[in-house]
């Protein structure tokens, strides 16, 4: 049952994501009556066109969606599902010719545009209107009705009242303006502002991390260890109050050596050393042979580190 519910939830999430993707499309521009300089379609004709824009950061497949100029007939012109070209990349545009001949191809609609009409983009369910663009009745020949981003970061678009010269297959609004690098060159030619801000942010981020860990863990831990530290300063051996703490100290030594040398043998040696220091075991006992560690190429740290190059001068 749990597996079934999980599957249903995953499927529901996938469906909702798909719907969310299509809803990221907008009709960004439309030309109802092209003039003699207007764009030619694949058949060499001049027809009106609309431009769809994907404002999301993911690819959207608009195959299966509908276009219409009649609100009472939302399924007027189907965009074919089977064409791979209906996948629109992030922040990309595509032109749909409103030639009135949908059979001409994937990017042709079954209606023509005229001033005063409203064109709708309808979801693949045939009911949900994703976006619309009202073409002003007074739109002159050769001019475009369009939407422009007033907040490029939030991808918020709004209709602009003034007709403009068409910009087919180009992004509207601030998209075409200078890059961040170019803007930075103008505002901060020597780089001092960026440097000061960036260094401050790096310090703030890491200082915040330091502060949090100091308050949450480091300070309380040091307070807890204070009696042992005090006894060490008086020349006595550290007081180890319980078995658990003793094992923690041994583990710390083992960890340190393990990080440094990466060997379980050292961890065992560290534990033995700790036990000796804590007076738990004796190193020298009658009748017991003590094997002392000898340096070799296997355990000598200086031989394990990479050597620094030596500068030879003649």
């Amino acid at each position: 049952m749990r597996k079934f519910l999980t599957t249903v939830l995953v499927l529901a999430a996938a469906v909702s994501l798909s719907a969310q993707n299509v809803s990221d499309l907008i009709i960004s521009e439309a030309v109802a009556q092209p003039d003699s300089t207007g764009l030619l379609d694949d058949y060499g004709r001049r027809s009106g066109w609309i431009e769809l824009y994907n404002k999301s950061t993911g690819t959207v497949n608009f195959g299966g969606c509908y276009l219409t100029d009649d609100r009472s007939q939302l399924k007027k012109s189907l965009i074919p599902k089977s064409d791979l070209r209906t996948k629109l990349g992030p922040r990309q545009v595509v032109l749909i010719w409103c030639s009135g001949r949908g059979a001409d191809g994937t990017f042709y609609a079954d209606f023509t545009l005229a001033p005063g009409k409203t064109v709708y983009l309808v979801s693949n369910d045939g009911r949900t209107i994703i976006d619309s663009l009202a073409i002003p009745a007074t739109l002159p020949y050769g001019m475009a009705a369009y939407k422009q981003a007033f907040d490029i970061r939030q991808q918020e678009f709004e209709f602009v009242d003034n007709p403009e010269i068409p910009t087919p297959r180009m992004l509207n609004g601030e998209h075409g303006s200078a890059t961040k690098g170019e803007l930075m060159k103008e505002r901060d030619p020597h780089g001092w502002i960026l440097t000061v801000v960036s260094v401050s942010v790096v310090f703030c981020a890491l200082a915040l991390l330091w502060f949090l860990f100091w308050v949450l863990f480091d300070r309380p831990a040091k307070k807890k260890d204070a009696p042992a530290a005090r006894s060490m300063t008086k020349g006595k051996r550290p007081v180890i109050p319980s078995d658990s703490e003793e094992s923690e100290v041994a583990a710390a030594i083992a960890l340190a050596l393990d990080m440094e040398t990466g060997g379980d043998t050292y961890a065992a040696i560290a534990t033995a050393v700790h036990l000796y220091l804590a007076d738990t075991v004796h190193d020298i006992e009658p009748g017991i042979v003590t094997i002392r560690r000898s340096e070799s190429a296997w355990n000598n740290k200086s031989l394990n580190f990479r050597k620094s190059p030596i500068l030879v001068t003649k």
Binding site: H190, G191, W192, L194, T195, S198, V199, V202, F203, A205, L206, A207, L209, W210, F211, F213, W214, F217, D218
Partner: peptide, 22 residues
């Protein structure tokens, strides 16, 4: 984690990035 104050040294050394940027 055992010596959080050492985090700040990691921040200071990033000056190399911004020095080279300038």
């Amino acid at each position: 984690i055992s010596q959080p104050r050492l985090i700040l040294i990691g921040a200071a050394a990033q000056m190399g990035i911004f020095g080279a940027y300038l």
